[in-house]
Design a binder for these strands. Structure first.
Lengths: 344, 344
DNA sequence: TTTAGCACTCGACAAGACGGAGTGCTAACA
DNA sequence: TGTTAGCACTCCGTCTTGTCGAGTGCTAAA
C-alpha cells in the first residue's frame, strides 16, 4: 500500500511528465508548492516507487517517467477533479444546439470537434446498422444482368449494394417483390430482416412471384452488409505532432493501422457504458504500444449505438480527454435520441 | 544544344540516382559498361551540365544529382524504351478480365493495383458525375420535416443528400413530383438536369403540383452535388518509405494535403489525354516541391471521365510509372466502356 | 525520519581529428 | 585539340575526447 506522500509524489511526477514530456527529477518535484520535503527525501520515495513498478528511468542518471502501471494507477486513483472550464462545457453543449438532420453529420462533426478540443486523434465508430430499422428498399436495374440495391434506414443511412441478376428474370417481378417487401418490412429492425422475410413474407412472395428462388437470391445479395460499420477520423495528423512520434517508422505503422478499418474497429469498439481507458500494451497491439485509447459510447434509449474515442500517447491529458468525452458523448446521445425519436 | 556524350552522361546519372538515391560521382559513372572515357572527362562534362542547369551538387565535394530541369529533360527526351516485361503487361490485362459490375469497384481496384505495381502512392479521381446520366431519383421522407434524396446514375453511382422539407408540404405531392421527374428526366445528363427541369418539366409540374415553389426548393436541395468527386487512394503510406521522407514534418504536410480533397483534385485533375508529368515545383504546391505527379486519364468514347495518377518523389521511376499508367488507363477505359455500353 | 553533502553516472553537446568520396585544375599525352 | 593522369583541395560523416549539467544513490549527521 502506498503512503500519502508516495501518492502525492507519484501524482506530481505524472502530471509534470504529461505536461512536459521530459523525465522528472527530484529537484523539480521539490520545487512545487505543495511539496514540503527535500529532493533527497523525494529521491528515496522515487526509488521505492520505481521498485514497486510505478516509475521507470530512461537511463541511470535521468529523472523518472511513469510506467504503464503508473499511468494505470493514476487513472484509477489519482485523477484531478474535472478541469474543464464552464466556458468549454457551454461551448460543447452549444455545438449540439443547432438543428441537425442527419445522423452521419452528427457523428462526423463530433469527430472533428473531439480532435480539435483535445489535439489528439479522434475516432468515432458509426452506429451499427443492426440497431436501426428499414425505411425503404429499392432495386434499380442498370443493365440486363446487373442492378443496384438501395437500403434506407430510419436514421437516413443509405446503403447501396451491387447485385447480379439471375438470367431470365423479369423486371416486373422484381418490382412486385420490392413492393411487397417494402410493405411488409418497413420498420423492421435490420437485424431481423432476414429472419422475418423467411418466416412471414416468404409465403406471400411465393404466391405473387414466379421464381421465388431467384428473388431470394437477389434479396440476399441486397442485404449483404459490410460487417464493419463506418469509421470517422478527426485530426488524423494531430497525434504526429506529439514528441513521441518523431520517428517516421512509428508514423508509418500507425498510418497503416488507420487504413485497416477492421483493426480500428477491434481496438476501439467498446461495450461498457461510460468511459474506458486502455493504456499502452493493454491495447494488445504493437503499433500503439505507447499510445492510450480512451473511449465512450453513445446510446439511444440506453441501447448501445456506437463508440467515440481518442488515440493519444500514453502521456496523455487523461483528465481533460475524459471530461471532453463525457460531455461529448452525452451531447451525441441527446441529439441522436431526438433524431431517432422524431423518426419513430 | 547538348552533345551526344553529354546526353549519355546525363541519362546515366539520372538513371543511377533514381536507383540509388545517392549523389552520383564521376568515378561510378565511368565504371558503367557503356561509358568509355575517364572520370576526368566526365567531370568536365558534368561541370558543363551543371552550368546549363541540368545537374546540381548537394555540396561542393559530393557527386551530382539531377535538377528539376534535368528531370524534365530526361522525361521529355531521354526515357528508355518500355521496360515492362510481357508478364507484367499480361498481368495487368488479366486484372480487367474478370467481370466487374460496378464502376466504383473498377476504380478502387485500379488504385490498389497501381500503388502495388509502383510502390508509390496512387490517387484516382472518380468519374465526374456530370458525365453520367440520371437513372433514378427518389425522395424518402424520414420525419415531418426531413427527408433523404437519392440519385442513382447509369453508372450505378448512388448519391444521397439530406433534405429539409418546407412546412405544410404534402407527402403525396412529393410522390407525384418524383414520379413526374423520373418519367421525364431518366437518361438526361446530370449536367443538364437543372436546365431541363426548368425548361421542359416545370410547366408540367405546375399543373400537377399545388406548390411549385416548395417542390423546386426540395429538388434544388436534392441535386446539390458536392463539387468534388470522389478520390481514391492506394498505398497511402508507400511514399513514406522513400528515403526523401525521413522527416516527420514533411510526412505531416503530405498527410494534411491528403485530407484536403479539394486540393488533391486541383493537383491531380488532368484534361490532356495521354500521360501528364509534373515535376517538383511544376505542381505549384509547396508540400510536394520534391515530388512528381504523373497522371493519365480514363475515358469512355473518347470523353474524359476521370484521372488516375501517381505521387512519388521527383526521383521517381518515370519510365515504369508511365508504362504502368498507360496500360492501366487503357484497361480502365476498356472495362468502363463495356460497363457504360451495357447500361445504354 | 529527514536532509545535507558528496561521489558517481550518464546523456547532450561542442571541438577536434580523420578518412573517404568527390571535385577542379593543370600539365602531359595522343 | 580533345582526353586523361595526377594532385591538391573541399566537405561531409563519423569517431573521439572532454566538459557540463542534471540527476541519482549512499552515507552520515541533525
Amino acid at each position: 500500500m502506498l503512503t500519502e506522500r508516495q501518492l502525492l509524489i507519484l501524482k506530481v511526477i505524472i502530471d509534470d511528465y504529461i505536461r512536459s514530456a521530459e523525465p522528472v527529477g527530484s529537484r523539480s518535484v521539490s520545487k512545487r508548492e505543495d511539496i514540503s520535503f527535500s529532493p533527497a527525501t523525494i529521491r528515496n520515495e522515487m526509488a521505492d516507487l520505481e521498485e514497486l513498478g510505478f516509475l521507470e528511468k530512461p537511463h541511470s542518471s535521468a529523472g523518472r517517467i511513469p510506467s504503464q502501471k503508473g499511468y494505470r494507477y493514476y487513472v484509477d486513483h489519482l485523477l484531478p477533479s474535472e478541469t474543464l472550464s464552464q466556458v468549454e462545457i457551454v461551448n460543447i453543449k452549444s455545438l449540439f444546439a443547432q438543428k441537425i438532420h442527419e445522423v452521419e453529420q452528427v457523428i462526423e462533426q463530433s469527430a472533428q470537434i473531439l480532435s480539435k478540443l483535445t489535439s489528439y486523434t479522434s475516432i468515432v465508430l458509426g452506429p451499427e446498422i443492426f440497431d436501426t430499422t428499414l425505411k425503404h428498399l429499392q432495386i434499380i436495374p442498370l443493365t440486363q444482368d446487373t442492378a443496384v440495391a438501395i437500403i434506407v434506414t430510419d436514421t437516413g443511412r443509405v446503403e447501396k449494394q451491387a447485385v447480379t441478376l439471375p438470367k431470365g428474370i423479369k423486371l416486373s417481378e422484381i418490382e412486385t417483390m420490392v413492393n411487397i417487401l417494402n410493405d411488409r418490412l418497413k420498420g423492421v429492425s435490420m437485424l431481423e430482416l432476414r429472419g422475418k422475410i423467411l418466416a412471414e413474407v416468404g409465403d406471400m412472395l411465393k404466391v405473387h412471384v414466379s421464381n421465388y428462388q431467384m428473388m431470394m437470391q437477389i434479396f440476399e445479395q441486397s442485404i449483404k452488409q459490410e460487417k464493419n460499420d463506418k469509421v470517422f477520423f478527426g485530426g488524423k495528423t494531430n497525434i504526429f505532432s506529439q514528441p513521441e512520434f518523431q520517428d517516421v517508422d512509428k508514423v508509418r505503422q500507425l498510418l497503416e493501422m488507420f487504413e485497416e478499418k477492421q483493426l480500428i474497429h477491434q481496438i476501439f469498439r467498446s461495450e461498457n457504458s461510460g468511459i474506458t481507458v486502455k493504456i499502452g500494451q493493454e491495447n494488445n497491439f504493437e503499433a500503439i504500444d505507447h499510445c492510450s485509447v480512451i473511449t465512450a459510447t453513445y446510446t439511444v434509449d440506453g441501447k448501445h449505438l456506437g463508440t467515440i474515442g481518442i488515440l493519444g500517447p500514453t502521456r496523455m491529458e487523461y483528465r481533460r480527454v475524459i471530461d471532453v468525452l463525457n460531455h461529448l458523448s452525452k451531447g451525441m446521445t441527446n441529439t441522436l435520441t431526438n433524431l431517432y425519436q422524431r423518426n419513430k
